[in-house]
Design a protein around this nucleic acid. Structure first.
Lengths: 232, 232
DNA sequence: CGGCACGTTGAAGGGCTTCAAGCTCTGTGG
DNA sequence: CCACAGAGCTTGAAGCCCTTCAACGTGCCG
């Protein structure tokens, strides 16, 4: 049997919390599983809980008025989702969709709020985390503003490789996640058709191996060249 | 003569700091002025200082490899620039360019770091601030991903109106900032030519009055309709 | 083994960029 | 005070990148 307070202790985020606080947080926590396609929370709902991903994959999406979805981030085990909004009692900035069956820990934002106000180190740690996310977001804004679709797709593949890439023989990197053309399109502000055409072109050049919901990067270096718009 | 610790006390950010800390922070602070076009700090420089805007306008820009600039945010009096990076000892995520002659207060990130670790309330307050910025950034990502240039320009005008709009006669709102076509282009990931054509079209419909480096919104409501892609 | 989600490919067209030329202000120095 | 240089802006033309629509192929799973 897994002890929740142990799980929390292992997580990077909570390592500043004293054992007593960990226990209180754990006591109020709920463990749950979610299946592919489930929404853990919905955009614009008031946030009182945040979630720690224990296994599986979850992504944060924003819905546009005209029905398109935009993927903001993907979360892997160890990541917290909705932490800041739950702590500050705001609304969720998007919906959290499970893309691969996941185990989650639902935690109380209010309790975290209390602990953060008592333990400055905890608040500071979370601040760094959010700052890093902000930095990433700003980079994406720059990319969306100034770069072509090709470059952005290349970049997102490289980012995914870093986050959840598995090394294969011959320097290839397999992206260990279900990843449809539509998913890539939503990450890059483009259409599934354009993603398809782009991947097909790269397959011809042996840069990637793109199967159904599965991408293997064969020549990471070439992808970097494309992302940086350098001649190959 | 202005007393720096008083200025700090008036700023929303520092109101949680005890007087003693304020004094120490003020003692290490440097007041400076900067002219239009000056760069307060440069992208990728190591950050040890952050800046409080006392007067004028400053914007944060990111440079792309191929020489384009992307505007990330505009700061008005009361705003802090580079706070988190200075506190966590990272590098500046962009350059801060003065767009209207400004008075600034340069403050020590290291001191803030100390105070944040001692005063949880301060850390929590700054966390909220950064969280709000993250939220904004994510909205911009959604806009850049899913919306047309027209919509984005409309949105940025509305945003500027909220931040530094001055009400004129007849429900019009004047944007109280020097704002060239190029500036609007950099905010929206487009070109100055497209901005020019868009504003010209809106002028024909009496929605805005666009002069040299100056925009007056005549019919805010119509801009909202354009931003939301609703029929007018 | 049929249905459905995922994927490919083609064709058409539009939104936007790019390049280019010229215009209009504004500030500055003679 | 005026001329003039340069920054800001407009407008046109060409065309490309990407979207959109459409039809069809493919493979997975009940």
């Amino acid at each position: 049997m897994t002890v929740i307070s142990d799980v929390l202790q292992d997580s990077e985020i909570f390592s500043d919390l004293p054992a007593e606080a960990l226990d209180r947080l754990a006591a109020a926590a709920h463990s749950r599983t979610a299946k592919q396609g489930d929404l853990i929370f919905h955009q614009d709902d008031p946030a009182s809980l945040f979630f720690l991903v224990l296994s599986g994959r979850v992504r944060l999406i924003q819905h546009t008025i005209d029905g398109k979805d935009v993927t903001m981030a993907t979360f892997v085990p160890g990541d917290a989702i909705g932490l800041v909004v739950a702590v500050t009692g705001q609304i969720y900035p998007g919906s959290a969709e499970v893309i691969e069956d996941a185990e989650l820990l639902a935690l109380s934002g209010e309790l975290m709020w209390q602990f953060m106000n008592e333990h400055a180190a905890l608040a500071v740690r979370i601040l760094r985390l959010v700052a890093a996310r902000l930095h990433e977001s700003q980079n994406r804004i720059r990319e969306l503003s100034a770069e072509r679709v090709q470059q952005r797709i290349a970049r997102s593949l490289l980012r995914l490789a870093q986050q959840l890439g598995v090394k294969e023989t011959g320097g290839a990197i397999r992206l260990d996640v279900r990843l449809s053309r539509q998913d890539l399109a939503q990450m890059n502000g483009t259409t599934l058709e354009t993603v398809s055409r782009t991947l097909t072109a790269w397959e011809r050049e042996q840069i990637v191996d793109a199967a159904r919901e599965q991408v293997i990067i064969l020549k990471p270096h070439n992808l970097v060249l494309i992302a940086e718009d350098l001649p190959s």
